[in-house]
Design a protein around this nucleic acid. Structure first.
Lengths: 238, 238
DNA sequence: CGCCAGCTTGAATCTACTCAAATCTTGTGG
DNA sequence: CCACAAGATTTGAGTAGATTCAAGCTGGCG
């Protein structure tokens, strides 16, 4: 029993969904069973392709993916990152077609998300998950539209921290950030060169350190205050 | 009967929802009844406030609104525009809290969106509406992140054309654009001065004209090709 | 231990911003 | 119906933040 409890808490995807809404035993078991049947996807492989029909809703179990769009001349924009516990292709609509391509940025594990019919307690978790995803899209728009390079970087890092904390993959301003500066640039609407310069400036200013894929934000609260960031909220409860 | 048929087609909100998914008589009547009970909102008034609980889903019947976020130092970002036939506050979640403020940009009429329980045919229309809204958020991200000023303006105008056509409020590249250049700038992540300069350049290039709130895109298909824009699609069917 | 992707640095350039002032529109009250 | 005020658009000049191009460096991996 204790061992089993430990398993839930330890599984990032399960942990995130539990944090979004209370789950009953049925829901937990459905999730664990689904996660047990998860499959691997190699970096640069698509989880979903723009314009292609969406056959099932996926739950990301491990790894990072990104929703991207590539322009005719090769410019690339990353719309958002998909982290463990995130749902992909949730829409509640008939014949849905994906409006963007999602590719794995690291080795990724995904499974088919359990159907709500099988575990009604999941409905609220899925709904909150989707609402949060939308809220993060809005945050991305504000970032690209109105923040300068330094603020964009700080704001994105704080968002990733917030999101990874839900899955138990971050704490005390520290988490694994398995991206290159170029990928970061594509998410921030900047060039890799400029991201590099701004990162170094932030390091020199003592705001953060980032080596061998581990990012540390030295004082998340202070940085959030500095760039005017507030945590995302989508329910009155949490 | 003919008179009544004409009424549906003519009402922009109804027309948009009909275009998104087939509606039965029950759904149409529920919508018409709701629209008949619509209320007016003056320009600059909020339809929804960030952080405030969302009490009901609204259907925009007339006028333009905008989802905005204002930063501490007064910078403002418009995340998207809300047009007739759009739904506001749709989320299917308990205790939802609005993740952005929505304000009327013109005199607006809204009504309570009919409940799906009362007219099940609405479910698909609502789901498609929400999926389209999300797709337009992605488009806004790509616009802000990777397009230059000229492309942003053209792309947004083409998007508005596409959306207004669903409601029967635009055709042949022509529609009423009841915004100031400053509002446009806040949507495009630019300054009003720069928007002004780019608009004049576009006018001189013969791409468009815009006087007394009427915008004309002279050759929408050509402009779309030029800036690399494809129409938004979210269902396999339409 | 050598290679390659990713990171770092510099210099020149450019797009978009800022500030400031003039002109044009629109709506309103007399 | 005109005059005025307030808001919106236009124009100019100078500046700043980010890009581009190019070259050198570093570290992780086969």
């Amino acid at each position: 029993m204790i061992a089993e409890d430990y398993r839930h808490i330890d599984a990032p995807a399960l942990r995130r969904l539990e944090a979004l809404a209370p789950l009953d035993q049925t829901a937990r078991q459905a999730l664990q069973a689904a996660i047990a049947r998860s499959r691997k996807i190699a970096p640069r492989r698509e989880l979903m392709i723009e314009g292609r029909e969406v056959k099932e809703t996926l739950l990301v179990v491990r790894g990072w993916a990104a929703r991207i769009r590539i322009l005719g001349d090769g410019r690339r924009q990353i719309m958002n990152f998909t982290l463990p516990g995130d749902l992909v292709g949730l829409c509640g609509q008939e014949n849905p077609v994906s409006s963007a391509t999602i590719i794995a940025m690291t080795p990724v594990a995904v499974c088919t998300a359990p159907d709500i019919a099988a575990a009604p307690a999941l409905a609220q978790a899925y709904a909150v998950s989707r609402a949060r995803e939308e809220a993060y899209l809005l945050a991305q728009i504000a970032r690209l539209g109105r923040l300068n390079a330094h603020e964009r970087i700080a704001d994105l890092f704080l968002e990733l921290l917030e999101r990874l904390e839900f899955a138990g993959l971050a704490s005390h301003g520290r988490f694994v950030l398995p991206l290159t500066q170029e990928v970061l640039a594509d998410a921030l609407g900047l060039t890799a060169v400029h991201v590099n310069r701004m990162l170094q400036q932030a390091r020199r200013a003592g705001e953060l350190s980032w080596q061998s894929k581990e990012l540390v934000i030295h004082d998340p609260a202070a940085l959030a205050r500095q760039v005017g960031r507030a945590p995302v909220r989508v329910t009155a409860a949490g």
